[in-house]
């Protein structure tokens, strides 16, 4: 009984903190910039415009895909969310070092707060995406109800990596440089810009094992066009889904384990 009560108390503390940290992050993010929150929309839109002109108008890669603009924008938004969560996540614990040295609180809240801030941004961006969908006129299928599941997978995967990286970063500052390089490579290794059909079959099969590729393609399949190549189509079996799901689960378990173990020492190492 006593245990249950104290457990609930600790939980309520985390929720109070989480709310405040997300709010603070929201308030501070675009401090002193004239356009403020509009930048959340402008940044992915600017990237989208550049890529759309190059890949659709010049290289004509998008011609094969119906609704390529929405297809491309969705990919960019999801990828953007992934990079935002992980990039902010890496330094999140170290940035709150001052706080960690002064007061004892559940450290996971820091990483979780960063993840929620990015989620708010994703939601705002999705509003823009819906406007795009209305303009371009994409046929929305009933499968769209499955979209939240895909977003949940994306949320969990990004969060798991953030937990792992933020704890590693306390000890090894190289993590942020390594991740920067990896992200750059991964942007091209993930079918964000190009249709998978352009890639040799063997390579496509390999690339699709990456959870981010699976997530983006699934989201496009549900929201934009069923001509999107998903991982099961490529392999011809649903079982292959276990590989990206397994990767997410493995990262999830190990990250939580590692973060919990390391968080005891954050106050002295940070």
């Amino acid at each position: 009984m006593e245990n249950l009560k104290s457990l609930r108390q600790r939980y309520s503390y985390s929720i109070i903190l989480l709310k405040q940290l997300v709010k603070t992050d929201f308030k501070l993010r675009y401090q002193g910039s004239a356009l403020g929150y509009v930048w959340t929309l402008l940044r992915p839109l600017a990237l989208f415009t550049t890529l759309f002109i190059v890949f659709d108008k010049f290289l004509k890669i998008g011609a094969a895909i119906p609704g390529y603009s929405v297809y491309l924008l969705l990919g960019i938004l999801l990828w953007n969310y992934f990079t935002e969560v992980t990039n902010n996540g890496i330094s999140s614990v170290v940035e709150k070092g001052e706080l960690i040295r002064k007061i004892n609180f559940p450290k996971y809240v820091i990483v979780l707060a960063g993840s929620f801030s990015a989620l708010i941004n994703l939601c705002i961006n999705f509003i823009v995406l819906s406007i795009f969908i209305l303009i371009v006129g994409v046929d929305i299928s009933a499968y769209i109800i499955l979209l939240p599941l895909i977003l949940l997978q994306l949320f969990v995967f990004s969060l798991a990596l953030s937990f792992l990286f933020s704890a590693l970063y306390v000890k090894f500052r190289d993590v942020s440089y390594i991740w920067e390089v990896l992200l750059q490579a991964a942007f091209y290794a993930t079918p964000i810009l190009y249709p998978l059909a352009l890639v040799p079959d063997i390579a496509a099969k390999f690339l699709m094992l990456n959870p981010m590729a699976q997530i983006i393609q699934d989201a496009r399949y549900l929201l934009v066009t069923q001509e999107t190549t998903t991982i099961d189509q490529l392999y011809g079996t649903h079982m292959i889904r276990l590989v990206p799901y397994g990767i997410v689960l493995a990262f999830c378990l190990y990250s939580v384990y590692y973060f919990r173990k390391q968080s005891e020492f954050f106050a002295e190492e940070v």
Partner: peptide
């Protein structure tokens, strides 16, 4: 805003 932030760290709800 700081009162609310500091308060949250001291375990006070809004």
């Amino acid at each position: 805003e700081n009162v609310y932030l500091n308060g949250a760290l001291l375990n006070f709800s809004v």
